[in-house]
Design a protein around this nucleic acid. Sequence first.
RNA 1: CGCGGGGUGGAGCAGCCUGGUAGCUCGUUGGGCUCAUAACCCAAAGGUCAGAGGUUCAAAUCCUCUCCCCGCAA
Length: 313
Amino acid sequence: MRIVFMGTPEFAVPSLEALLASEDQVVGIVTQPDRPKGRGHELAPPPVKLVAQRAGIPFLQPLKIRTPDFLEALAAWKPDLIAVTAFGRILHAPILNLPPKGCVNVHGSLLPKYRGAAPVQWAVINGETETGITTMLMDEGMDTGPMLLQERIPILPDDTAGTLAPRLAEVGGRLLVETISRLKAGAIAPCAQDHAQATMAPLLKKEDGMIDWTGSAQSIVNRVRGMSPWPGAYTFYGQERWNIWKAAAVQEPAQGQPGTILIGAKQSLKVATGNGLLELLEIQTANSKRMSVGQFLAGHRIDSGVRLGAATV
RNA sequence: CGCGGGGUGGAGCAGCCUGGUAGCUCGUUGGGCUCAUAACCCAAAGGUCAGAGGUUCAAAUCCUCUCCCCGCAA
């Protein structure tokens, strides 16, 4: 079959590579335009583009999807099927209807849970112990199409969004190839989602990383995990912004108001929460790199009793 | 030419503005204390202060350039 692949970030790379290694032919790739990134204003190519170049497969980086030009270019590739993993754009009907076999999407959750742009992160933030990959036939909604295959994987207690995503992406690649193969054989029955069970996993915003100390210690741990490596969970020590990269709930009763710092022996820094104590393990302050709390305390004088929270003037 | 912070013994920081024998917390090593210890006490080792040039009697500190790192913003 002739397949067009659409995808953008690192998460999409295993899907593309799995397709390239499969019996089907990837005749074209669509990815997002290079974007300014990093400290200067250098343009950074999306990971999928790099793979496309290395594989020597023609690719497009349209600024806008809903144009006659793009649709024409897509049609010229004569795809039997379009495979989509984390492309980052909504496909409208003219594209969805283009390939005879339809458009297959790889989604990083157990649909109908966690529809949307950040399913991996929100699953971790909500403390799920299991997630997975769902392949589906795309329709015009946001991850609402009928499901094809699903595979579950556990979320480990120490997983962050950053450690979980690559594992899911691998499963995604495998499941994508299997899905296509079974579609060709007519050995798969699309199964409508139970829309009543649907939940949303919207794109993460910076503010989603703001730690609410009135929550439980475990809920804060989960937020820290889900916001890593981007955009990061944070709080304020006075006016100074602290990014928290690793934390653990401690089996001790909290002392003081939520957010109160407790400096202990052994170079430890614990914080009272709405329910339980939270020990900070890895921290990053402005203009500095992330470091263990032990290292941080070696060079910074932090007093017990100070409250973390919103920025104070 | 997007804005800003920084590179000081192994780690994290102070000192720089107001030039003049390099300091703090921790780690390491040795010793002591202790039933014992990741705890405590004593001692030691370890730095061409990122690099190059300049000003000066004298530069970590002032000026110029280079390299590297980081935060914000995207």
